[in-house]
Design a protein around this nucleic acid. Structure first.
Lengths: 142, 142
DNA sequence: TATTTTTTGCGAAATATTTGCAAGAAGAAC
DNA sequence: GTTCTTCTTGCAAATATTTCGCAAAAAATA
């Protein structure tokens, strides 16, 4: 989605109280750079082209970054997680139920409906941000 | 969600062109009976109290029933799938990002926004139904 | 620089799901 | 009902994804 300088990434990591390490910078920077949510598998592939980094390290960094709210985790029913930068803005995508096509849809807000849902909820008072996955069948598979 | 007679379940299965077997009836009936999406693990537990059924059989039936559109698969970022009956009506739930609490929210439509999103999409012409997972932190975890 | 805490690599383990294969059951045709 | 074909099942083993234990290395702090 966006490219950040090393300094900017460092600041992001410091602000949430995590230690700044080369590997953590790499993981965050790489997730931030994608236009679409990236799978852990692809992320590891991508990172390994440049750096020697263990898969456990990638998983651990994804978890810590997610826990501290810097990245967002999405599933899409594919049996493996996808990650994207947490922008604070909701994220909407349409997902093909047959192949693994994902399309990000921007510019349409459902914030009002979300507010209504939270009002209806008994277990949630508020949510920070939300993401929506709409499942369908893409043109190719149809 | 709802209880169906054996005959009704049989008809549902026949209409999508799958063979009617005791195990398939059990799986579909059990998924249909839940008020909330059920995990495969819980489903197997539940079924095994009454019947001798192999986990592979449960997985294969869930897959075939899902493929034929009788049940819906949901992930919630928990690392394992949940299933619910495919009603043709959209399904909305709020999910806690810390624990595994799920709350179904009924009665709020976002169909208009979904339509707008599909209009914006390049890869999808239409979708049959959709499900939305909103992530937040529940009162307990907050 | 010394100290404390976090992170990393490595291999192994845990979890979730799928698969190959032979035997058994369902549906269709006779 | 019998026969034939195709689908389904059980079982065990394989895959895929993610996590964990532990010792060594690096980051933040004093």
């Amino acid at each position: 989605m966006a490219t950040y300088t090393r300094d900017e990434l460092e600041t992001m990591i410091q602000e949430v109280g995590l230690r700044v390490t080369d590997h953590r910078l790499l993981v965050l920077g790489s997730v931030a750079r994608q236009r679409k949510p990236i799978t852990v598998y692809d992320l590891i592939e991508t990172l390994r082209k440049k750096e020697d980094i263990d898969q456990a390290t990638v998983y651990r960094n994804l978890n810590s970054l997610h826990e501290m709210g810097l990245i967002r985790r999405l599933d899409f029913n594919h049996g493996h997680a996808h990650y994207e930068l947490e922008t604070g803005r909701p994220s909407h995508q349409i997902v093909c139920g047959k192949c693994e096509t994902i399309e990000k849809i921007e510019g349409i807000s459902i914030d009002d409906s979300i507010k209504k849902m939270i009002k209806k909820s008994k277990k949630f008072k508020q949510i920070s941000t939300h993401s929506i996955e709409i499942y369908g069948v893409c043109k190719n598979c149809a």
